[in-house]
């Protein structure tokens, strides 16, 4: 059993979907991310998605692009991202941490070395936006060997003929990108999401997390009721951005305000009791 499967099993037992907030490592600086990470579990994060900064986040909308830019400007790197997870693990050994990013930093680090280093730091899974199954072999082997879940993305455009191929390497949970588009723009209709989740359930027993366009506690609740977890990224990043001064420095209330927002999302998810599958 891994931290990810343990957590989803516990959620299932509790009869509710989970909340997965997303923040970018090092945005707006290392210290703020460390404090956010430390506070997220108590605020109600069931799993944590941590963005691995990249200079060219071409599947992301403006909020996450800017978060990546702020982080890199403040000196974020792959090694420092793993350091943040290592530090988080000193106080939290149960909340799963999943990295999300683009393949180039992983490729340059070396797929094998990256998988080993990430697992050793306490990372549980990784989502690589631009690494489709057709190109993933050189990474999935090392990831499996290191005990790191390779979390795949499926999209509205992934049809039934293609799904088995996409799911072949899947571990941890399956991330459903609920709208064809970049992060943080529009939201999918609740009924569309339920249909998509039903379709995916026919192909996999892994837990399903749904993301893209989820901004409010009500939306998070609706999604978490239909799927096993809701991912909220751009809206959380938006709170961070709202608490920066004109020079991009964090205002004193940034961490509290962001965690309060995560708490509101978590409260939404928790009051909605989804039916156990």
């Amino acid at each position: 059993m891994s931290r990810i499967s343990d957590r989803f099993a516990a959620l299932r037992q509790a009869g509710r979907g989970g909340l997965i907030p997303f923040i970018t490592a090092g945005d707006p600086d290392r210290d703020t991310t460390a404090r956010l990470l430390a506070g997220l579990p108590a605020a109600g994060a069931d799993l944590i998605e941590l963005g691995l900064p990249f200079s060219d986040p071409m599947a992301d909308g403006p909020a996450i692009q800017e978060a990546s830019e702020r982080a890199l400007k403040a000196g974020a790197s792959t090694a420092r991202t793993l350091d943040l997870v290592r530090e988080f693990r000193e106080t939290d050994t149960t909340t799963p941490v999943v990295l999300m990013g683009y393949y180039n930093p992983v490729f340059v680090h070396g797929p094998e070395r990256f998988a080993r280093d990430a697992a050793a730091a306490g990372v549980d899974g990784i989502i690589l936006v631009d690494l489709p199954p057709e190109e993933a072999d050189e990474f999935t082997g090392p990831a499996r060997a290191a005990g790191l879940d390779f979390i795949v993305l499926t999209a509205p455009t992934t049809d039934d003929a293609r799904l088995p191929r996409v799911l072949a390497n899947a571990g941890g949970f399956v991330y459903y990108v609920s709208v064809a588009g970049v992060t943080g723009t529009r939201a999918a209709e609740g009924t569309t999401i339920r249909d998509a989740v039903d379709r995916l359930r026919r192909f996999t027993d892994l837990p399903l997390a749904v993301g893209f366009g989820i901004r409010t506690p009500d939306q998070a609740a609706e999604v978490a009721a239909a799927a096993d977890a809701a991912v909220v990224g751009s809206a959380v990043i938006g709170r961070i951005a709202d608490n920066l001064d004109a020079d991009g420095r964090p205002a004193p209330g940034l961490v509290d305000d962001t965690l309060r927002f995560v708490g509101e999302l978590a409260a939404g998810v928790r009051k909605q009791r989804g039916e156990a599958p």
Binding site: D130, P132, E134, T157, T158, R162, V177, G181
Partner: peptide
């Protein structure tokens, strides 16, 4: 699969892969 030796390929988001 679009490879020239170790180069090339198709590194795009899943949403674009079917296209």
């Amino acid at each position: 699969r679009g490879h020239f030796g170790p180069f090339g390929g198709r590194y795009v988001a899943e949403t674009l892969m079917p296209l």
